[in-house]
Design a protein around this nucleic acid. Structure first.
Lengths: 333, 333
DNA sequence: AGAAATAATTGGAACGTTCCAACACGCGAG
DNA sequence: CTCGCGTGTTGGAACGTTCCAATTATTTCT
């Protein structure tokens, strides 16, 4: 249970600690014989380098820390995978912490990462305010994913929510809809631009009088609340653009219980293209974000900042794509 | 960008490094005046303790490391939350790594944690063989979640899959089914006991001749493959017990496309009670595992082993509960 | 063969903390 | 006035690595 050290290995192999260190980092200036001896000794003792000690002397951990706001949203899995892959490619490792959407726990999670001296920090759709991100960025390169920020010390990666919203409105208008409502994402990351994108696009189509944004949220409850509000109104909208898939699915359920057919009576669109939305039973029309790429970009940005310390902020905006499925169709008036 | 150390704080506050250390760990034997001076100095410098250095000298990191096999399955979110909460309660922190179901990456992820000198290791439904778990448990207390293991050095937390399967069969038999088939989980954690639980239970009901287990998997593809096999057979089963919800949902879709009504033509049952299965549109009958508790238990086990090193293995088995929804009903023969 | 160059190996210092034994100070008791 | 005691405070050693300059062993060249 007690971890062997480099000195134990050195003794067993009959060489100096320095040589063991050299072998561990596989330097090319050790003789084949010594290398073999060291490797054997290490294996027989079950030696594992101590990252804490290494971090101390190198003043670098070669770890990027990732804070994930919400593991429940399947949206993040691919994103994290993208981060992980890019990190490994660049010779880094990634570790995650989560705050389960609670502010204090998120703060604690960031502290944990910072105290461990991660070389870079990636905040994935944090509930944390951007002040906290800026604060963190003073001690380590930081990038925020899913939220744009104007801070000059923090990079960001996000999809173009305004464009995504426009794609949705264009699609619905093309089908012949005019009374297109929006259930927003509340305070969550990306909610604002999706709403303004919707409103702007409606105006562009000359539908400023049909604009109807109601309060929702990025959760099932949010979708629920939003659709209840809308169903109470007359005339009813013929199409609804919901802030994300999770909420959109809740909307579909309510419509179902209320006996409204989709898309004949109402068309519904989500956002995120989660695996669920692709399900044949749901067939939700939605907007796809390049999740994996977003993760990869985030890791690359943070690592670039670590490796050659850049001092201007980088804000990457990726383009979303509309995915048309069965929940949208022409209105029947 | 350069991290201030305890010495910087000491100098600024006009005291010794030892005193700063005392304040940081808030000892009660420092005068109010010194405490204030130190705290102010620390705040103004933006000092953060260096966990690597602390870990070195204390020979303890107060961190438990968690390997998550698959972030895509929403099942794990609550589990991880349970771990995190319990860890914090006990004065520890938790960090995650993931291997995205790939063996080599899982191994790397475990190495990362071990090198960081986590005090305990939790493997959540790992793809890794139990050899790897045993290997890890030689250097640090280890618990496996979602899989039972017979290794004496590794603790485990799992639900009683056999019982869960029995509940399903009992329910279906009570509804009047006899031709009950099973699509298994392939090589995944928990697959075996669910299958044997099903078979045993069928025998208990005198239905040994109706036993039909086909190969599947814990994924959508698995469910797909399984149901295709079953649909080709005659007479068709009137009820199908699928290894988990993810696969069960895929099964529902295929049945839908094939024009078979659920539950009139076929009843379907899943396992896990993921949020998706509760959805009104799906209404999947399934088996609930106490996810949050399982996470909490796992953390408590590992921390108990750290704090007073126990040397007998602990295997916790929690009871699952049947959740009846709309995908099961009496057979119509 | 001897010098020079190259290859392989080495010990000590440093990284930022905690722990421990020792010290300084003031105060009440003898 | 000295002793002992409790309360705050202190410096040095230690943790397990990497880095560097120094040392030794080996090869190459003339």
């Amino acid at each position: 249970m007690k971890h062997p050290t480099i000195l134990d290995v050195a003794e067993k192999a009959g060489v100096s600690k320095s040589l063991v260190s050299l072998v561990m980092r596989d330097s090319d200036r050790v003789s084949a014989a010594s290398r073999k001896a060291v490797l054997e000794a290490a294996a027989s003792l079950g030696y594992r380098p101590n990252a804490a000690a290494r971090t101390m002397v190198r003043q670098r951990s070669y770890v990027v820390g990732v804070l994930v706001s919400n593991l429940h949203n399947p949206f993040f899995a691919d994103l994290i995978d993208g981060i992980d892959v890019a990190a490994i490619d660049a010779g880094y490792r990634s570790i995650l912490t989560t705050g389960n959407r609670e502010l204090e726990r998120e703060r604690l999670a960031v502290s944990t990462l910072l105290e461990m001296r991660v070389d870079g920090l990636i905040l994935v759709s944090p509930a944390l305010q951007s002040d906290d991100a800026i604060e963190a960025s003073r001690s380590v390169p930081t990038v925020v994913v899913g939220k744009t920020t104007r801070a000059p010390t923090v990079d960001s990666v996000a999809n173009d929510d305004r464009l995504g919203a426009a794609l949705v409105v264009d699609h619905l208008v093309e089908l012949g809809h005019r009374r297109i409502a929006h259930i927003d994402g509340g305070i969550g990351a990306g909610s604002r631009p999706r709403r303004t994108g919707y409103e702007r696009s409606m105006r562009r189509h000359g539908l400023e009088n049909e604009i109807q944004s109601v309060k929702g949220g990025f959760t099932e409850e949010g979708g629920n609340a939003g659709i209840r509000t809308l169903l109470a109104r007359r005339p009813r909208p013929t199409a609804i653009f919901v802030a994300n898939d999770l909420a959109a699915i809740a909307v579909l359920e309510v419509l179902d219980t209320e006996g409204l057919r989709v898309p004949q009576d109402v068309s519904v669109v989500g956002y995120d293209n989660t695996a669920m939305s692709a399900s044949h039973r749901l067939g939700l029309t939605t907007v796809d974000q390049p999740r994996h790429d977003m993760g990869r970009m985030a890791a690359e940005l943070v690592i670039a900042r670590i490796d050659h310390d850049r001092h201007t902020a980088n804000h990457v905006v990726l383009s979303p794509k509309l995915v048309v499925r069965e929940t949208t169709g022409p209105p029947i008036d």
